[in-house]
Every structure is written in C-alpha cells, then in structure tokens.
Design a protein around this nucleic acid. Structure first.
Lengths: 219, 219
DNA sequence: GGCTTCGTACGTACGGTGTACGTCCCCCTC
DNA sequence: GAGGGGGACGTACACCGTACGTACGAAGCC
C-alpha cells in the first residue's frame, strides 16, 4: 500500500548517533534525551532500544564517531616536534567542530579502536623522536592533560575569566576587594584569544619536551 | 511542647551545602538530587528552596565552599618557581580531598571572591617574577589548562588508559589491531602513578616558563 | 499458497528528577 | 491577645530513562 511507497529510511544505530550529535550541537548536551532523539527521527522512543542498549552506550557511540573523524596522518619528512604540534591541532579542530559534544567525548573512556588510534600515533611520534618507553608515556600524558584543559576551556565547559570585567564596576570591585593584580590586568584578562592561548601553551610544552634528554635523537 | 525541646539545628544554606558535598563524595555527583539532600537533612524537599534559589545555585555554593578551602599563602622568601609549584600542588590537594566534586567545582564559573583569590595569588607570583602583564596571563592560562586536565584525569572524569591492558588478551588485541607501540608500552600504559605524572608535567611546564624572557628578573 | 518464526516498532507504565504553587503553623511584635 | 511574616511542607506538573507486553511485516519452510 501507500505506506510502503514512502518507506522511511531504516532506523539504524548510525542514524541514531547522527541525530544525537545534531541535537547536542544544536541544543546542548543536557537537552539530549531519548524522547528528543526519537522525535527528531520521527520514531517511537522505545524503538531506539532495538539498536542501542542504553543512553550511555549511545553517548559512547557519539564519542567514538567524533573521535574517529580526526585526521592524524603526518607528513612524511616532518620533524617530530611539528608532528606533535600537528596532532594537538588536529584534536583542537574536532573540538571546535563539535564544541558542545567535547565534554561528552572527553569524559567517555572508550576501548574501541577509534580511541586508541590517536594514542598509537602519538606514541609512535615520541618513540621515533628518541624517547624511551617510560618517558614517552610521561610526555604523552602531560600533553594530553594540557590538551584536555585547553579545549574544555575553549568550548566553554570551564571558565575562561573572559567576559568578567567587561564593565568598570566589576573592576572597581576587584581592586576594592583586595585584588590589585586582577584589577591591573583586567583589560588583558577580559580578552581571551583561544587560538593564541592554545599556541602559547603548546609552544611552551613542545620546547620543554625538546629540552628533555633523549636516548636516541634523530632527524 | 516536646518538639520544641529537641529543636533540629536550623536549616541553613551552609548546612545544605555541606550535605550536598557529603552526598557527592559518598555517592557520586549524579546521585545528588534535591530529594536526596532533603532526606539527608530530615527535611521536606521544598524547604531547601527557602535558602537556595535553585539546584544550580546550590552547586555554585559547593564549588565556592571547596575552592575557599585552599591554602594559598606562600613562604616569604620562596623562589617564584617554588611558589608556582606550591600553588599547583595546593590545587591538587583539594581535588584529591573532594575527588567526586572536582568536576562540579571546575565546570562552574564563579564570580565570587573565593574563585578570584587563587587567581590573584597566581598573578602576583608571576608578575613579581618579572613577567609583563600580557605574558603573565598567557602563562597563567597555560598552567590552568594543564592543572585542569591533570586533575580531571586523576579523579577519574577523563580516561587514564590505566586499567585497560591488565589482561594479556587486550594486549594481543592491540598488536593484532595494528597498534604496535601501544602493545609495546602496555606495561607502562597499564600503570598510572598520578602523583608522579603530575610532578613530571609540572616540572616540564615550570622549566619552560623559567626559560621564557622576562622584563625584570628578580631573586 | 499457507504456516511459522522472528525482528522491529510501538504504547503504556513505573520510579525518578527539578521546581511552581498554595497552605499551615510557629514566633515575634505591638 | 491580635496581627503579621517567614519558614516548613504537600501536592502537582512536566520531564527523564527504560522495563515490559503487544502487534505487525518480512523471511523461511512445508
């Protein structure tokens, strides 16, 4: 009959994940509910559970999908420090592309390959740069920590101190409350060029890593 | 009458905040509900709203209380690099003292003085070390990013890659899936001494900051 | 072709959430 | 004692995740 002539595209885990991502980016992570996703797909709520065991697993799928979209391939002859920079910037790019999903992606610990591929690439770069196993992991974890903090700030999960002292009243309050340095730096604290801050800290880290002793320096 | 002879301690914003912190630490942040807090205090749910305008404001209070408990005073003659280290470690101490509240504290942007005091102390240290305003803020933000990422990992909000390859099967999977470096480093990746990792990255950052040009070096 | 089987979509229902609203009662002031 | 104000409380609403039972359409078998 006619309902068969307009078959909706089959309900699928992939379509559900896509709808969830769209919903998060459009209306925020806390607006995501199974009902909202079902409505978006024009489908009953419980039909989702035929393809996804739980909301938590669905969010795992969101993280996996987003993480899988990063481009991690390095230019062949690139210096290892530039490879590190490139991998960090690749991470930043996806975070900016899916800003409101960033916290979701970062808080899910996934064992799936899409989560391990960036780890593999980073460790490869560091070991080829001449860092022994133990040191490579230390460096890796330090960089990850910086990345996590930077990106969570940039997407607004964590405060940036940015729009605070826009008005002079807050500034007066600051100096009156015994915060002279904050008052003095208010114009600088009021702005936050995320790209510049990211590069500043990244350069700081890369230079520090470069100064570390290596077992077998190459290139 | 007799109900007056056993007067419950007056319901108070402070007591509500304390109950919330206790609940978060005992049963996790997602177990916090107005009903659970009220039950903990032996009180009706809606009575809470006489002292707290909303759950969000209550969580602000939690963040404020915890942040206010940090000890930021520096030893007088201390070198500025040791002051930086000390302030970072102070932050880590509260994070470890309230592990399950850490995400709540970090994701709330508060304008209250208790949130600004650590900022003021950090900026004072950096400016006294001879960093001009702009640079001081850049350095401050880089350190904050590292702190955020480190502590969120340590309290378990963000994955640590730690207990993954406990069993040899996962390791075999890793090498089979084309992750040779992960496989090779599995024993190192399997452990994560958070204190050591924290100090490693902190040292990396402090040395890098020390190498930065300063307008007026002192001490 | 007829029958069975199975996967998927769906409606209903339960226990949870934050909180708006109205009521009641105790205590303080006059 | 009378009046008033503030805090404690119960109820109610809209929403959440999801367990459970049902109904229907396609596929396999005789």
């Amino acid at each position: 009959m006619s309902p068969m002539d307009v078959p909706r595209p089959a309900l699928t885990r992939d379509r559900i994940v896509s709808a969830a991502i769209g919903l998060i980016e459009r209306r925020g992570a806390e607006a995501v509910s199974m009902r909202a996703i079902a409505a978006e797909l024009g489908v009953g709520v419980m039909s989702l559970y035929n393809h996804v065991p739980s909301k938590s697993a669905l969010l795992d799928g969101v993280a996996e999908r987003i993480l899988g979209g990063v481009e991690f391939e390095a230019a062949p002859g690139e210096h290892w420090t530039d490879q590190v920079r490139g991998q960090c910037r690749a991470f930043r790019q996806i975070a900016l592309h899916y800003p409101r999903s960033t916290l979701v992606v970062m808080t899910r610990q996934l064992r799936a390959p899409s989560g391990l591929r960036p780890v593999e690439r980073a460790l490869a770069t560091l070991r080829e740069a001449g860092f022994a196993g133990e040191t490579a992991v230390h460096v890796f974890r330090a960089v990850i920590a910086y990345l996590t903090g930077s990106l969570l700030r940039e997407v607004g999960v964590t405060p940036a101190l940015a729009p605070a002292p826009r008005d002079p009243a807050a500034l007066e309050d600051a100096v009156a409350a015994g915060f002279p340095h904050i008052a003095a730096l208010a114009p600088v604290l009021g702005r936050c060029d995320h790209a510049a801050e990211f590069e500043f800290g990244l350069e700081l880290l890369v230079r520090a890593i470069e100064a570390l002793p290596r077992d077998a320096a190459q290139v």
